[in-house]
Amino acid sequence: MRTQNLTILLLLLFPFIHVSGQYTEELNSSRPGASQGAFSVGKNVLQFESGFSLGKEEHRLLETETNAFALDYSVRYGFLKEELEVSLMGEFQSNTYSYPTLAGRPDFKVSNFRSNTVGAKYLVYDPYRKMELEGPNLYSWKANNRFQWKDLIPAVSVYAGANIDFTENAVDKLTNPFSTSMDELTISPKFVLATQNNWIGGFVFVTNIIVDRVTTEEPVYSYILTLTHTPTDWFSVFVENQGIKSDFYADQLFRGGVAVLINENFHVDGSVILNFKDTPSRTYGRIGMAYRFDMHDSDEYIEEKGKAGRASRKERKAKNKKEKKKNKRMDAVEDDGDGGDGGI
């Protein structure tokens, strides 16, 4: 209930915007939040995102205390067409925890990958493309800068990936504390439905519905809600709520932080994460960066789908045909050989 109230409050407090997006002149990163936006990085763009976290966990029932270090990473590449992106995402974590014994509280260290996922994301619907083609209302500034019901229609993408989970540490052969599988190597699917609204005033609202590891004995279902605001061209802030449900682990996580654009291809960020339960409680600080190699050479027109797309293509084809006929008639006026001076 607390999560729902927080989300509703945030949505009521902030005004709305729509902005077009796919390839952008400035780096477009999923950091520092955990959600995936609907849009890809752009065709022929290679982007690296990474960060490290330091945190502490305390479990009231088990009486354990854990100091954690985590490294997350993401490699994203857009190819073939603007709507498509492939990626490798993962996280490595090392925990040092202590628990009460007759001899005191000895430390015990474990480390392994929380996740390694290879996948692809595809933009299936982009309402901002149609808005961009229609253009602004030239007669009314107010009409272009007020909330409209169509602003609630988000861009939509789908993601499908494969989790590659290792159940043993390759160095000391300890069991992976972040996995419930007993197999040496487990490959399982991950699916994400991502939506994105770009609203007036520099606000972006992203939702993710996630179905993860459904072929294993411990499937995970979760959602992520992320609200980002960019008050300037180089600075942004965000708040985020993530709900996780599985038999192995369930939680409500809250994140907040900032990102600073150093130049069009590089940004740095900082964030915090916490929850409100004590089995365990979690408090983490996180800093990171994103960098892209921009090899995008030309903008690609993203065709509309369905009946509207066919009508639009037909209209453009007829217009091009008309222009060709007009140019042909202009070229048909031949020189009479007098040099244009009337034979004088």
Rank of each mutant, 00 (worst) to 15 (best):
N5P: 14
L6F: 09
I8N: 15
L12P: 08
L13S: 09
F16Y: 10
F16H: 08
S20V: 11
G21F: 02
Q22R: 07
Q22G: 07
Y23F: 05
G33M: 02
G33T: 07
S40T: 09
E49M: 03
E49R: 00
G51V: 00
R60L: 12
Y73Q: 07
V75M: 10
Y77Q: 02
L80N: 09
K81Y: 15
K81V: 14
E82L: 07
S87F: 08
S87M: 10
M89D: 12
F92K: 04
Q93K: 07
S94E: 13
S98Y: 03
S98V: 04
Y99I: 07
L102C: 14
G104P: 06
G104N: 04
R105Q: 10
D107F: 14
K109G: 13
K109S: 15
K109D: 15
N112I: 03
G119I: 00
Y125M: 10
R129V: 08
L133H: 07
E134T: 14
P136V: 08
P136K: 11
N137D: 14
W141V: 10
N145Q: 07
V158N: 06
A160W: 05
A162C: 12
T167H: 04
E168A: 09
N169P: 03
N176T: 03
F178A: 01
S179W: 02
S181L: 08
S181R: 05
S181G: 06
T186K: 06
I187W: 05
S188Q: 04
K190V: 13
F191W: 02
V192Y: 00
V192H: 00
G201D: 04
G201P: 02
F205C: 04
V206H: 03
I210A: 01
T215Y: 07
T216E: 01
T216A: 00
V220C: 04
Y221C: 03
Y221V: 07
L227K: 05
T230Q: 13
D233R: 11
S236K: 01
V239P: 11
E240H: 00
G243I: 02
I244F: 02
S246C: 08
D247F: 09
Y249V: 11
Q252Y: 09
G257R: 01
G257M: 01
E264F: 08
E264T: 09
G270F: 10
V272H: 02
F276H: 12
T283Q: 11
G285I: 05
I287T: 02
G288Y: 00
M289W: 10
M295A: 12
H296Q: 03
S298F: 13
D299K: 12
D299C: 15
E300M: 10
E303N: 12
K305D: 15
K307A: 13
A308K: 15
R313V: 11
R316Y: 09
N320V: 12
K321H: 13
K326E: 15
K328W: 08
M330A: 14
D331Q: 14
A332Y: 04
E334V: 15
E334Y: 13
D335T: 05
G337E: 01
D338G: 05
D338T: 06
D341V: 09
G342D: 02
G342E: 05
